[in-house]
């Protein structure tokens, strides 16, 4: 879910994972895949993209390209890193 569309009160009592908590040392498969595919440019949108992809892979460890497109289309990237986002999600899925 988007942190900007959710008030803190709505997640009272729930476990919340942010980009800082995805892995202790940046070694979550999605983080490693993002570096391997050299996805980030300005990087401002990347935290949201990574968490969106993490939610996708936790529900669906082997998504098709259409499923990735459907899920990731909720996020925007102004730098145009989209085709690398596909590759990174696919790489992470194959190595998770």
């Amino acid at each position: 879910m988007f942190s900007c569309q959710m008030s803190v009160g709505d997640v009272d009592g729930a476990d919340v994972t942010t980009i800082e908590g995805l892995s202790p040392d940046g070694t979550h498969p999605l983080q490693k895949a993002r570096v391997a595919e050299q996805v980030p440019q300005c990087g401002y949108c990347q935290s949201g993209h990574i968490m969106r992809a993490a939610a996708l892979l936790s529900d669906n460890p082997n998504p098709t390209r259409d499923e990735i497109k459907e899920e990731m289309s909720q996020n925007l990237c102004r730098c145009g890193t989209y085709n690398r986002i596909f590759k990174a999600v696919e790489r992470a899925a194959s190595q998770a």
Binding site: I19, P40, G43
Partner: peptide, 16 residues
């Protein structure tokens, strides 16, 4: 040759 700023842009450390 990899970008030097990739790691901080995937773990929340990047400071804008």
């Amino acid at each position: 040759t990899r970008r030097l700023d990739s790691p901080i842009k995937v773990n929340g450390q990047a400071q804008f």
